[in-house]
Design a protein around this nucleic acid. Structure first.
Length: 265
DNA sequence: ATGGTAGACCTTCTA
């Protein structure tokens, strides 16, 4: 089973590009972020034609997340618990049905810039809520994948110029500490299974020639519960997609899990 | 030089 995450930066502005990648790679499951539309405007039929079931948690103009799966989505949750005042659409979760069911959460973690605004504490509080929710999910002892645009640069090696990013909300010590705390709950970063690349950038800014100069950052992650990481075969970062016509500033990332079911363990 | 782009939408915000 191959699970994808991709911040598409408007699913409607990017539909042709997004569909082209789906037709080429045909992942079994996909988490999309920044769909930038309300539920009614999501191009559900286009994905259904490719054989996907669709769950959408949309929002006008900003944010918005969706889950796609070739098998039916069960137990769908929309929105991250822990703050009834939070109306930003950044979290969607479902159980992917099949012989070896797996729970997948798609996240669009807040950017948090500028750090001297309310956006940074919102980011940190969102990460704290995610930590609390994931802690509960891990108690289920199920295969779980938490995938998405984390807006977190975990390590110096995940950014072209660490010094230039020192004060950025994506790289601040508090942000990186919260990401480590999430992993310390018992999640594995699937990126450990990537091989043969000098770095694993997943985002290049539209500005200042970031892509041609390869000034990227690694911020799109798949974190796996022990029951999921036991099945991890490989990770792929589709960096070529950044060079396509009308690209998103993020590229798709996939993790492939073996199909080993409960009966064989 | 502190630049540059992209998307949604009401001329400014978000990233």
């Amino acid at each position: 089973m191959r699970i994808a995450t991709w911040n598409v930066n408007s699913v409607n502005a990017r539909l042709e590009t997004v569909l082209a990648w789906f037709e080429q790679e045909r992942p079994d499951v996909a988490c999309l972020q920044e769909i930038k539309c309300v539920d009614d405007r999501f191009p559900i039929e286009a994905f259904e034609r490719l054989g996907y079931n669709v769950a959408v948690h949309g929002q006008k103009a900003y944010n918005g997340v969706a889950l796609l799966s070739k098998t039916p989505l069960e137990d769908v949750r929309k929105g991250l618990p822990g703050d009834d005042e939070d109306d930003q659409a950044r979290y969607i979760e479902a159980v992917i049905s099949g012989p070896a069911p797996i729970r997948v959460a798609g996240i669009y973690l807040p950017n948090g810039n500028p750090v001297d605004s309310a956006k940074f504490p919102y980011k940190l509080s969102w990460m704290s809520r995610l930590n609390a929710h994931v802690r509960g999910l891990l108690r289920l002892e199920e295969p779980l994948v938490v995938a998405g645009d984390y807006n977190v640069i975990p390590e110096d090696t995940d950014v072209f110029d660490p010094a230039a990013w020192a004060g950025d909300a994506l790289f601040r010590p508090e942000t990186r500490a919260a990401f480590r705390a999430l992993k310390w709950l018992g999640l594995t970063d699937a990126y450990m299974a990537v091989d043969g690349t000098p770095h694993g950038y997943t985002f290049w800014d539209y500005q200042a020639g970031a892509w041609p100069r390869d000034r990227g950052i690694r911020i799109d992650h798949l974190l796996l519960s022990p029951q999921a990481s036991d099945r991890l075969d490989r990770v792929e970062i589709f960096r070529d997609v950044r060079g396509w016509e009308k690209p998103s500033d993020h590229v798709p990332v996939t993790a492939t899990l073996s199909e080993r079911g409960a009966s064989e363990t």
